[in-house]
Structures are given as C-alpha cells and as structure tokens.
C-alpha cells in the first residue's frame, strides 16, 4: 500500500485524531469525580487552615476523610451574603470566587454573592472565614481570611497561588508568611483600611501592615489589592455583625 498518497494521509490523520480524542474523553470522564473531590478537599483544608485547624492533614492516612470530618466538626454554619451584607439563598461552598472577582472589577455590586463560613473553635470562639481572590504576577492568587467575632481582628489567613515565581512570590503560600497577619486589624477606628503589604518592612506595632516579600514586589502588591478589594465587599456584612 502506498502510505504516502494524499488520501491515505488524510484518512490516517482523521482516524488517529478521533481515536485519541475518544481515549482522552474516556480518561477525563472516568477520573473527574476523583479530581473534583481533591479540589473540594483542598478548599475545605484552606478554610480550616485559616483558622489554624486541621494541622494533621499532611499526616492523615486518608486526607479526604480527615478534612471532611474536621470541616463537619468546626464549620458550624455557612451562608451567602449580598452586597448589602444581608443573607441570601445559595450554597456558600459552591460559589466561584473568580466570578465574584469579575463582578467586583466591573463594579456590578448588585449581583455579588459572597460566601461566609462560620467556624466555632473548641473553646467556643466564633470566627468568620471569608474568601479572597485576585490576580498575581503569573496567574490567580487566592486565600481565606479568618476574622474574630469583632469582624476586625485577623485570627489567621491562608493564601495560595497558581504559579507565582518559585522562591519569591510563591512564598505567600507559606505558613511563615501567613503568620504575619495574625492579630492585624482591618478597621482603623470605624474606617476600613484593610492590611497593607509594605515594601522594606512594616513598622513594628503597625496594626494594619505586614512585610512585603523581597523580590516578589508584584505578588506582594497583588496581595494587598486582593485583600482590600475582597474584604471591602464584606464591609456591609461586618458592620451588620458588629452592630448586633
């Protein structure tokens, strides 16, 4: 057979591509549930980590089960709030922060659906865990901020990123970096100021600033914007909660 004729080449290419597409579709389809459960576990783990919980996750023999049971135990309530800070319907866990980020960016406040997770610690302390999302240097960065029940003092944070520069911007995902945020306040008296990320180092005792990462200026700035933009959307909710 002449394997170099045009017809043969066309048929060969078409058959090959269709075959490969079928195999890939089958593989992707059969692994999808498993992959989604990994993604959900990671999300739950981040929410718990922002409240310094689920510390044994790396050692757990079945990470998915461990994280799910911890989430069940500590996240006592979750709901969705709108731009006025009032609770509306919706499942907090299923909200895509990327969409909310787009809405915020285009100032379409009315359509915002913001998830809130209430976390009750062993000693009864109530925490509000809220997500944040923004764009870093190379891709999205996101995280969760756990606030004490005064809706002002940060109890803990966790950040993650898609592909910030290894060793530089990627350090926002380290526990060491996140620890800086503990005890910082997002309100100065009654004014929302968020937490700034200061190049060259924040002044000691500054309640509203943390150190930037040397060599990771763009990621640091992005982190500052992400905190301001995401937390600002929750300000009406925080005000309602503090007045109660």
């Amino acid at each position: 057979m002449n394997t170099n004729s045009n017809t043969y080449t066309f048929i060969y290419a078409s058959v090959l591509v269709v075959l490969v597409a079928a195999v890939l579709a089958f593989v992707a389809g059969s692994l999808k549930t498993k992959q989604q459960s990994n993604i959900d576990t990671e999300k739950r783990l981040h929410i718990l980590q922002s409240a310094h919980l689920a510390t044994e996750a790396a050692k757990a023999s079945n990470k998915n089960d461990y994280v799910a049971s911890q989430f069940e135990q500590y996240i006592t309530r979750s709901y969705v709030v709108d731009y006025r800070g009032e609770i509306t319907d919706g499942n907090a866990f299923d909200i895509e922060m990327k969409q909310q980020y787009e809405l915020l960016k285009h100032k379409l406040k009315q359509e915002l659906r913001l998830p809130v997770f209430e976390c009750t610690l062993d000693d009864g302390t109530l925490l509000y865990v809220v997500p944040c999302y923004g764009l870093g240097l190379w891709g999205p960065i996101w995280g969760y901020v756990a606030l004490k029940d005064d809706c002002n003092t940060i109890y803990g944070v966790v950040f993650d990123h898609k592909g910030e520069t290894p060793g530089l911007g990627s350090q926002i995902a380290t526990e060491k970096y996140a620890r800086q945020f503990v005890g910082k306040q997002i309100f100065d008296k009654d004014k929302f100021v968020s937490v700034s990320v200061v190049k060259g180092g924040a002044r000691p005792n500054d309640l509203h600033a943390v150190d930037a990462i040397s060599g990771g200026t763009i990621t640091s700035n992005a982190l500052q914007d992400l905190l301001f933009m995401s937390l600002e959307a929750y300000v009406p909710f925080f005000e309602i909660k503090t007045k109660q």
Partner: peptide, 19 residues
C-alpha cells in the same frame, strides 16, 4: 511505524505523545 505516512510523521508522534 510501518503505517505512518512519512509527511505527517512528526505530527503523528506529537499526537501520541501529547495524548
């Protein structure tokens, strides 16, 4: 190897590797 049209040899390789 004996069925591949020589002109699209590299493309076929890429498809298989990518898959």
């Amino acid at each position: 190897r004996n069925t591949i049209p020589n002109r699209i040899r590299i493309i076929v390789q890429l498809v298989v590797i990518a898959a």
